[in-house]
Amino acid sequence: MPDTARARRWPLATALLLLGSVGIAAAWILLADTRGAQSSWMAVIAALDAAWLLRLARARPGAVRAIAGTAATLLAIVIANWGIVASQLARPMGMVPWESALKLGPHHAWTLASLANSSVDLAWLAAGLVIAAVLSR
């Protein structure tokens, strides 16, 4: 297959990865809100989803695909943690979670996410990134 045909697959792969990251993060936020816990094991699900989407888009195997899968997983982790913090802040302030998410600053989100994630949660997040790198290549 010519390189131009392979190059045309990356816009599809990028769109799928963005949509997948946002979708898995939304599911993660809802699960964490329902369970009242961080549910950091969802990082592994996000990694599996990213690897599957890259294969679905027929992205060329290699380092670029591994980086793309890892970046998509990292994006899902960031969005999910932002959303979990925002939903926890929204209740006492009388807001809906998306209002809180828009008003939440990065420093405040980082501080609250750091306090909410235990060492086990951080291990799950790291495992998700490693799994994404391995399965996406």
Rank of each mutant, 00 (worst) to 15 (best):
2 P>F: 09
2 P>I: 00
3 D>S: 04
5 A>P: 01
5 A>K: 05
8 R>V: 00
14 T>E: 06
14 T>L: 15
17 L>C: 12
18 L>A: 15
21 S>D: 05
21 S>W: 01
22 V>F: 12
22 V>T: 12
24 I>K: 05
24 I>E: 02
27 A>N: 07
27 A>Q: 10
35 R>W: 07
36 G>A: 11
39 S>A: 15
41 W>G: 15
43 A>V: 09
45 I>A: 15
45 I>Y: 06
45 I>M: 06
48 L>K: 10
49 D>G: 04
53 L>F: 11
53 L>D: 03
55 R>N: 15
58 R>V: 05
59 A>H: 03
61 P>L: 11
62 G>F: 10
63 A>N: 06
63 A>I: 14
64 V>S: 05
65 R>M: 02
65 R>G: 08
69 G>L: 08
71 A>Y: 02
76 A>L: 04
77 I>N: 08
77 I>S: 04
77 I>W: 11
78 V>G: 03
78 V>T: 10
78 V>R: 07
79 I>K: 00
79 I>M: 12
80 A>M: 08
84 I>C: 09
84 I>S: 06
84 I>L: 13
86 A>L: 06
86 A>I: 03
88 Q>L: 04
89 L>W: 04
89 L>Q: 14
92 P>M: 08
92 P>V: 06
93 M>R: 15
95 M>I: 00
98 W>I: 14
99 E>W: 01
99 E>Q: 15
100 S>M: 04
109 A>W: 15
110 W>V: 07
110 W>N: 04
112 L>S: 00
114 S>Y: 01
115 L>D: 13
115 L>E: 13
116 A>K: 06
116 A>E: 11
117 N>P: 01
118 S>I: 13
119 S>D: 14
120 V>I: 10
120 V>G: 05
121 D>N: 14
123 A>P: 02
124 W>L: 05
124 W>R: 06
126 A>C: 13
126 A>D: 10
128 G>T: 11
128 G>N: 13
129 L>S: 08
129 L>A: 09
130 V>E: 03
131 I>K: 02
132 A>G: 06
132 A>P: 00
134 V>H: 03
137 R>N: 13
